[in-house]
Design a binder for these strands. Sequence first.
RNA 1: GCCGGGAUGGCGGAAUCGGUAGACGCAGCGGAUUCAAAAUCCGCCGCUGGAAACAGUGUGGGGGUUCGAGUCCCCCUCCCGGCACCA
Length: 928
Amino acid sequence: MPPGIMAGFDSFGLFAAMQERYDPSLIERAAQQNWEQTRAFKAREDSAKPKYYCLSMFPYPSGKLHMGHVRNYTIGDVLARFHLMQGYSVLQPMGWDAFGLPAENAAMANNVAPAKWTYANIDHMRGQLKALGLAIDWEREIATCQPGYYKWEQWLFTRLFEKGLVYRKNATVNWDPVDETVLANEQVIDGRGWRSGALVEKREIPMYFFRITQYAEELLNELDQLPGWPEQVKTMQRNWIGKSYGVRFAFRLAGEPDNLLWVYTTRADTIMGVSFVAVAAEHPLAARAAANNPALAAFVEECKRGGVAEADLAALEKKGMDTGLKVVHPLSGEEVPVWVGNYVLMGYGEGAVMAVPAHDERDFHFAKAYGLPIRQVIAAAGEEFSLDAWQEWYGDKTRGACVNSGKYDGLAYEAAVDAIAADLKALNLGDKQVQFRLRDWGISRQRYWGCPIPIIHCESCGDVPVPEQDLPVVLPEDVTITGRGSPLAKMPAFYECACPKCGKPARRETDTMDTFVESSWYYARYACPDADQMLDERANHWLPVDQYVGGIEHAILHLLYSRFFHKLMRDEGLFGAEHVVQGRATASAQSSSVKGEGANAGPKSLPTPTLPTSGEGANAGPKSINEPFTNLLTQGMVVAPTFYRDGADGKKQWLNPADVDVTTDERGRPVGATLKADGQPVVIGGTEKMSKSKNNGVDPQLLIDSYGADTARLFMMFAAPPDLQLEWSDAGVEGAHRFLKRLWKAVYDHVQAGGGAAAPSGELPAPLKDFRRQLHQTIAKVTDDYGRRKQFNTAVAAVMELMNALAKLPEDANTPALRQEALETVTLLLAPIVPHVCEALWSGLRPGTRLLDQAWPRADAAALTVDEIELVVQINGKLRGSIRVAAGADKAAIEAAALATEAAQKQLNGAAPKKIVVVPGRLVNIVA
RNA sequence: GCCGGGAUGGCGGAAUCGGUAGACGCAGCGGAUUCAAAAUCCGCCGCUGGAAACAGUGUGGGGGUUCGAGUCCCCCUCCCGGCACCA
């Protein structure tokens, strides 16, 4: 028998006794088995407790888990477990964003069917997720590639089609002329197809669109109803929706007064400064002018080269060419030329813009480059207009007034726009208009591995939605992916069908949906994954999601589309009004300050929560059926150092950090690195997002295998706050593991020594009293960090500090009891982050009970009181000393004590202070 | 290009509402233990000067507001995320 006691299992399936050595694999297996056998995380609709729906963005099943997943899911799990301990009925589900491009790429690379590849990946990754010990209700797992899931997506599509919220129009895509296929933006590299290397062209094809613009106003306005979202994300969405107030008006074509060229502008006040009009290369006027102008035709062709990604287009050099056409200025009657500009986007607004070079920076540079006139029509006091260079104020609508603008001279922005809009309206050539930057959502994809669009094209009946009884349109799984064309369009067995209306032979749509569609409603399906309708009454119980956790990269598209879908489903009556809205987490229990509870509360006393609470205000209040995610946490990336050598072919050969040794100088600064294999130097690159291309990924599996899931979870939570990027560090992992070993030893030693009473009794000597105050401050701090701040690194740090203090606690009659209280508390506080080891420690501290059944600890207000506090003394804002005063000391006493300090006497040198600032509980600043 | 962020010791980070900059951890240095090493434990640790006490200085760069600025305002640099077909 080795020293210590061998671990045995009790009736809970947990440890009856602790062994001396911290053995993560044993502990984690036992804890996970116990949770699984007791179905500990099954979410129930019939609970009397308030509900808390905690959701992490589901993964794409790419093959194996990466560190970003570990981080994402640990954050979600910490919040879920914290709320579980706070007395909530928690739903934390998991599933798979299973459709998408990588499965088709894998199919080509490895000659494996996308379905088979995807399901194999899911099986592997599910095992990896389970090894992390997440408090997930696995009985609700969904995969979006299953017909049982996408059937309802197709069903909603047909409903929206009937309502006119889905329509068909042409859109521009990246076309690879060699592979004869449409490319995703990421498949266009430097203007060429990634596989064929062919120059990519723009091509117009018909696509289905969701009319998201119909919801633009609501999507914009309801951002104000989301106090639980980061301001940053709401700002990005506001800007993306881009509501603008402007004027839409028309120019008549010179000599063809019935032919109108419409433009939209937010700067109608500068209309008298228009010196040309620019249209997109795809604009009908451009095509018309190019018909008998070979040079222009060549330019239009040039504009059609390259991809459609807006980031690339915006970075292009601004180019243009005169069409030779002229239009008549609606107010001045002057003729202005029409140009084709490569910077004008056909898909945005009218595909044409009025150009005012004097007051638009882009137009200014364009006019200078092509020698077009620049006419100043706005003047600002104290500023001089010069054609030499662009100045900020030229484009500032808050400054100045109209000049050189005839009857509008002297009018400021608003008055000028009003007058000009009124005049255009009188001419029947325009009016004020509110416009959105947001465009309708094109969802057609010419790909195989996606949800089939449930439409049948009939020569007589047109586009006919597939009737409900024929859904789902099942995606055939036995296909060969070649990378050329669309696989479904080559399968007559798939597309040959009869028209549901007239019965004549018809052709089934062979495009599939954007995978963003599946991810736009999965959060709702988790409420009722087995329902034989899109959503059932369980959605009313669980929605909205109380806490959503995921990467900041989804700030706009995914989160906007999900908000849109939520409103679509609401308007379809899938949840909301007619259902009873109940089971809301109305536990109002806002954090209440301890400060007010005692007259002599310490300076650093923190809020104490009452049970149950989620700790954030946004979670309370009436349940909204308008928004899917009440609180949002956006997590940063996981990054790691990179190392490389210059290969013989001139390309960099990237080396994995695990294979490299870094050497440091005597201060620990890195001075060089060598490859472990050959001891020869390598180049230290930058710190970058973990990726295959830079070979700087660290496999979470290795981490879990060698240290255990708890160490992985602890490192992830401790290394950085959730919203910042997290830098990978092997040494940091070691440190996290060391802490768990120390914690284990502290509890083991305590239990071996006979443990202690549940709590100390009677008056404690000062060091013990101080420690107990720190203990209860830590409870308050950690509770606030988990609940309100959602910042876990500081929670861990506070517990580490407490453990450091515990190790220095003097021995007294009450010490074992105090130690018992401290260790029990620490175990509970850390349980959301490192649940397995805490479960084992708890069974050591309280044999026969299970940690999962314990309530969250509460700070004892009595333990938090202090008699005396320390205040910093500053002279002219510089730290010069400190004083100790009674906790309730008044301002006069504090000032007197501060003035009496040696530092103050020396600095003042007999003179009277000019001013004394007393910051209660913090400092005194004497202004000499 | 446009929109949104970020920058604090050798490193990750802390400082929550404008109030002691550097908590906690890593690395490093010194010591204990050991035949030795690993592990563990104790101590030191922004920079400059000083034996020390202490003084000066310091939060990407420049300016400003304030008794007091890492935090607020203006300008700039670099890095990161998104830009509608990667997810």
